[in-house]
Simulated assay, not measured.
Amino acid sequence: MVRELKEVEGIIFKRQKYHDADLLAKIITEKNGIFTMLAHGALKPKSKLGAALLNFSYGTYVVYFSGHGLSTLRTYKNVEQFDGLYDDLIKNAYASFILDLVDHAFMEYQNLGKYYDLTKFALQKIASGTDPEMITQIVQMQLLAAFGVEPELRHCVICGQDQGEFDYSIKNGGILCKKHFYTDPDRMHLKPKEVAVLRTIFLLPFERLGSIKINSSTKKATRKAIDRIYQDTIDINLKTKKFLDELKLMD
């Protein structure tokens, strides 16, 4: 197999011991997708590789790049960490869920395009103290298209109306205007403000959404709505999501 030596910018989000002193580290990269690197000797006491492969580390990694299967880490440079994510249980849980969700949306080595920037934006915002629940909801809504489930939130899926009162219909794959509510008795029955939040965090560029603030009851309702959308259209069960839900029960 011919391997190319290249520099990749990326974020480490999973690691595990491999053999006695080696590490496997999963990385989400700007241009080369998500893949796993083998780091020989990273667990040896004198090795500096281990510290550069902690979860939520980011920077430039020099890799013998395979394009499929394992690539091999040679060295690194300019590696930092998202401050506060590693040691803060709540921030760690939200960040881990986001990275896990992105990982499941793409094939190995598949170019992520704008979703790399979305992921980095989300981690930066959570690390800086922005409401992690709201940032996670933004990611979940904007990631639907990557899963092949892109709802119509610009206008009513039946008549094209883009102003007025709306509700979300999973059966119809998007929003219904009030005069077409009757077409789906199982629509979500969301309040107008809740639908407005879903539309906003789906349609607006994510870099404009970092300071969005909503009250706790609306946020809880949109969380439940997004959970239902994922459950009924994608149906993935992630341990990181289960852990988040358990933490919310502890609140």
Rank of each mutant, 00 (worst) to 15 (best):
Y182E: 06
E194I: 08
M107W: 00
Q142D: 05
Y86D: 07
N92R: 15
P151A: 05
D131W: 01
N92S: 06
G160K: 10
K191E: 09
K191R: 11
K193L: 11
A196I: 01
M141R: 07
K191L: 13
A95I: 14
V197H: 02
K171H: 07
G173S: 10
N92H: 15
L153K: 04
C156Q: 05
D162W: 01
G148S: 08
V149Y: 15
I98C: 08
M134T: 14
D103C: 02
C177F: 12
L144W: 08
K178E: 14
R199G: 01
I90M: 10
K171N: 12
L118Q: 13
P151E: 07
F181V: 02
R154P: 00
L153I: 01
G174A: 03
L190T: 08
R199P: 00
V149A: 08
Y94A: 00
I98T: 04
H180S: 04
Q142E: 06
L176F: 11
F106H: 06
Y168M: 02
Q142V: 08
D87A: 13
P151I: 00
G148M: 05
F181A: 02
F181L: 10
V195H: 03
A196G: 07
H189V: 05
D167R: 04
L112V: 13
Q142M: 05
M141I: 12
E108A: 11
F166P: 02
Y86S: 14
E133N: 08
K120H: 12
A146L: 07
G113L: 14
R154M: 03
M134P: 08
T183M: 15
K91N: 00
K179G: 00
G129A: 11
H155F: 14
D184W: 13
F166Y: 02
Q137G: 07
Q137C: 06
I158N: 04
Q161E: 15
D100I: 00
F97H: 15
I158W: 02
N111H: 15
L198I: 12
Y109R: 03
A146D: 06
Q161P: 06
M141A: 11
Q124T: 14
L153T: 02
R199Y: 09
S96P: 00
L153P: 11
E133I: 08
V157S: 05
G164S: 05
V139S: 11
L144K: 10
L85G: 05
Y116F: 15
Y86R: 15
I90T: 13
I175V: 15
K193C: 00
P132S: 05
E165A: 04
